[in-house]
């Protein structure tokens, strides 16, 4: 998979993967909402798996691919729990006299 450009050879898969990783890092820093941050983290992970594959570590790539949805699901469950907690605390804080003191 080498593309010859005027003398040297350039491979496409590491190039795309490094582009994805750099853009994902900048996007995780710049976005402020947490769901946007998780989508950008997904974008970064795709590039990371591509970079691992381009150095022929196939077992590490397969294990990373299996473990990556698990971590995403745990992050999303945590964010939903945070949202529920914020809403329920706002609703009940004026009614409970124990928390006012």
């Amino acid at each position: 998979m080498k593309v010859e450009v005027d003398g040297g050879t350039v491979e496409i898969l590491p190039l795309v993967s490094i582009f994805c990783i750099v853009m994902g890092c900048i996007g995780v820093i710049l976005n402020t909402d947490y769901l946007d941050k998780i989508i950008m983290l997904e974008f970064l992970t795709g590039g990371l798996i591509g970079l691992i594959v381009s150095f022929y570590y196939l077992d590490v790539a397969i294990l990373t691919s299996i473990m990556e949805p698990v971590s995403t699901v745990i992050l999303l469950l945590g964010s939903l729990k945070y949202l529920y907690l914020k809403r329920s605390k706002k609703r009940y804080s004026s009614k409970l006299p124990i928390l006012v003191k």
Binding site: V53, S65, T72
Partner: peptide
């Protein structure tokens, strides 16, 4: 091919969750 299939199914699963 196995690596590509596992990567694709895993990324589809996390897109589903998002």
């Amino acid at each position: 091919g196995v690596a590509a299939a596992v990567y694709f199914i895993g990324s589809t699963l996390s897109s589903n969750a998002i």
